[in-house]
Simulated scan of single mutants.
Amino acid sequence: MSKKSWSAYLITEAPPEEGCEVSASDRRRFAEVPVSGWHALVLWAIGPAHVIRCLDQRVPEPIRVVCESGGQRTVRLEERTCGDRSAVESEIHDYLMNARVPSQPCGYRWFVEIPGGISDCDDLFGRFSSSLSEYRDQLMPVEEFEVMVAIANLLYQDGKKLESDR
């Protein structure tokens, strides 16, 4: 059994347009993946044949901070800090480690191929979520991963079984 690595996930120069092909020779549809440990685990279950990434060169959006004091509410925007980014990456790292999956590389935008019969990214991740919901939060990330691999195998039936190698 071979060990897969995040380095096997293709890096493209630019992100694909939402729902569009990567290139004229590649007719697959891709959608950007939300940033979370759960979504990263789904990408690991799906595997590098159906996921691409590109460097994240966007200016980070500001964070909306809401404060309430003395019955008065104030809202302000603040720039994201290295600490903010570090906290998010730490949560993703911890989730993946609990699933016994290597840490996902930082600084990338991730895109998943939308299989035939699936309308968009929400529909795709909804299939994973609804299949896992029958377990009603009884699964640890390591157990979720095994279910995710089975779902990915059903959704991406391209003649080969997706690898569940860690």
Rank of each mutant, 00 (worst) to 15 (best):
L154E: 07
L96F: 06
M140I: 10
T12H: 06
P16V: 06
Y9S: 03
L139T: 01
C54G: 07
V59C: 08
L132S: 03
I151N: 00
L55W: 10
P34T: 13
V112E: 00
R29S: 05
H39L: 09
D165F: 09
D56K: 02
N153D: 11
H50I: 00
L96Y: 00
S5F: 09
D122R: 14
T74L: 02
K161R: 15
R85S: 08
I151Q: 02
P115L: 13
L155I: 04
I92D: 00
L139E: 03
E79T: 12
R76A: 02
S2R: 08
V66I: 09
Q57C: 11
C82T: 15
S23I: 06
E134W: 07
A99S: 11
E13Y: 05
E61S: 12
F125A: 05
K160H: 11
E146L: 15
M148D: 01
A87W: 06
L162H: 09
L155Q: 00
V35G: 08
G107L: 04
C20S: 11
P115Q: 10
W110T: 02
M97E: 11
E113P: 01
N98I: 09
L43G: 00
S25G: 10
P141N: 12
G117T: 07
W6I: 02
A31W: 10
F111W: 14
F111Y: 15
L155E: 02
L154Y: 06
C20Y: 12
S2W: 04
I118T: 04
S103W: 14
V147S: 05
R136T: 02
P60M: 04
G71F: 08
D26C: 10
E146T: 15
H93S: 11
V22H: 15
K160W: 03
I63K: 14
Y9R: 04
E146W: 14
M97A: 10
S133T: 06
Q104R: 15
E113T: 09
A99W: 04
D122S: 13
R73A: 03
M140P: 00
S5I: 08
R29Q: 13
L55D: 05
G117C: 06
A31C: 15
P105D: 11
D122F: 14
A49H: 05
Q104F: 03
C67K: 08
A45E: 00
S90K: 11
C67R: 10
V142H: 14
G37N: 06
H93W: 12
